[in-house]
Each structure stands twice: as C-alpha cells, then as structure tokens.
C-alpha cells in the first residue's frame, strides 16, 4: 500500500506545471524515503529529476517500492479539480492499476475522489553521478525566468559565460544581439535576492533557450535557482522544494560544429 498526504494541493500543481511541458508520461517511483521521478524529453536533450522526500508530506506510507506510471496531462487535469488549499492524498494498492486522488477542502466540508488508470511505462533511467562543478550561479528564480524569456526574443541559443566579473547571458539572431550581465551581490540582505557566483575557472557554454524556458516553469516552486556548469558537461538547473526535495533539470550543451 502506498499513501501520501500533502497539506496543500498547490505544491503538487506547481510540480506538475514544472514537468508537463517536458515530459508526456513518467514513472513516479515511490519508496519508504519518498517520491522520485526521472524522465527525459522525447528528443533526449534534457532530463527532469524530481525528489519529494517523505518528510515533506503530512502523512506518508509506502510498504514496498512501487512505480506509478502516470500520464502527466491526465494528472494535471485531475489536479485542476483541487483548490490550492485542499489537502491531497494519493493512494495506490501494491498490485493495483490505479491511483486515487482525494481532495479535502480546508473546512473539511467537501471531499472529492478521482481515480486514474496507471500506465506501463518503459523508463529510460540515466545514471547521473553527483559531482563538483566548475562554476555555480545562484540567483533569484524570477530573474532567471526573465533572462530566458527576454533573450528568446533575440535568438534560439544562449551563451552563458562565467568570469570573475559575473555571469553573462548572450543571445544573437537575425535582428541583433542581447547581453545580460549579473554581478555577484551576495552582500544583499535578503537571501532570495542574492546572486552568488562560485567559480574555479572561467567558462562559457551554449544552451538551447527553448529548453531553459521549459525549466523556468518551475519558478513558482522556489525563490532561488542554481545553475551548475562544467565545460563539456550538461548544465544542471536546480530549484529546491522547501527543505524537503528538489526539481533538477539537465540540459546537454550545444557544441560548435
């Protein structure tokens, strides 16, 4: 038996928002530690990795590991039936082929139950080693969102350059060129507004803005985002979900022909 209850439907809605443009179907892997999901987009260029540890739930029970194969669009439709303040419980039998969503209103006067059929999904799981990166940039999530949106009006590719001076995002296209530079401002009082750059050596990498724009759908989940970069390796874009998990996106770099 798997059963997990979270106090606010809003959180699960935000998680789905952050996943649905990248992934059609995905296995939600539930263990006694929590829920995780790893899925690549259909072109195998990017990957989303979600972790929601059990301590982020009001109630969590997972008798044995279970993978819930879920069509993200169907789950999104069901979650739209919940109010943001509703409590949500997910429930699945060990050998069952459905997952049940229960929404309870804050005043407990309304209870809705939706049953969704599970899918059999062949998951393509990638082994991604945890590693130190050459450069990391922590910045307000809304700032990163704005930069990706603004540079998309200029070109399809962004060059991210990290130097001692700061981090520079550059896009160029038929109509011209755009450059946005952020400087280290780790002295700003409010942590969520800080730009914190760590760097072992200068580097410059190019990425497709189309995917970065998908990643910024997670902006509502966290105040800050961290970009981790190493030459010739995929970019890691991480949004922390409070203190109980994260959503990480990986994007292979573009390499000059």
């Amino acid at each position: 038996m798997f059963e997990a209850r979270m106090a606010q439907a809003a959180l699960l809605k935000k998680v789905l928002e952050a996943v649905k443009d990248l992934v059609t179907d995905a296995n939600w892997d539930c263990t006694s530690a929590g829920i995780s999901l790893q899925a690549m987009d259909s072109s195998h260029v990017s990957l989303v990795s979600l972790l929601m540890r059990k301590d982020g739930f009001d109630m969590y029970r997972c008798d044995r590991p279970i993978s819930l194969g879920i069509n993200i669009a169907s789950m999104t439709k069901i979650m739209k039936c919940a109010n943001n303040n509703d409590a949500v419980t997910l429930r699945a039998e060990d050998e069952g082929d459905t997952v049940v969503f229960t929404f309870e209103s804050a005043d407990q006067e309304k209870v809705s139950e939706f049953e969704m059929k599970l899918m059999d999904i062949d998951s393509e799981h990638l082994g991604i080693p945890e590693r130190e990166h050459t450069a990391t940039v922590k910045m307000p999530a809304s700032e990163f969102h704005g930069i990706c949106r603004d540079l998309s009006t200029i070109g399809e590719t962004v060059q991210v350059s990290v130097t001692k001076e700061g981090v520079q995002f550059t896009a160029s296209g038929d109509t011209g060129k755009g450059t946005i530079t952020l400087r280290n401002n780790s002295s700003v009082d409010e942590e969520s507004q800080q730009v914190v750059i760590t760097m072992q050596e200068e580097l410059s990498l190019s990425f497709a803005l189309r995917y970065l724009n998908f990643f910024t759908k997670a902006t509502a989940l966290a105040d800050s985002v961290t970009l981790s970069m190493t030459a010739d390796l995929p970019l890691v874009v991480e949004y922390r979900i409070e203190d109980t998990g994260y959503i990480r996106y990986f994007l292979a770099p573009k390499i000059d022909d």
């Binding site: 195998h44 990017s46 082994g127 995929p234 292979a252 573009k254 390499i255």
Partner: peptide, 14 residues
C-alpha cells in the same frame, strides 16, 4: 550553427 548534443552522450542508461 552549434550542434545540440543529446544527454546520452554524457550519461549511460541504467
């Protein structure tokens, strides 16, 4: 134009 690499060039399927 830069070539878009795939993740499979960096990470193995497990």
């Amino acid at each position: 134009t830069p070539i878009q690499n795939e993740l499979l060039e960096y990470y193995a399927l497990v």
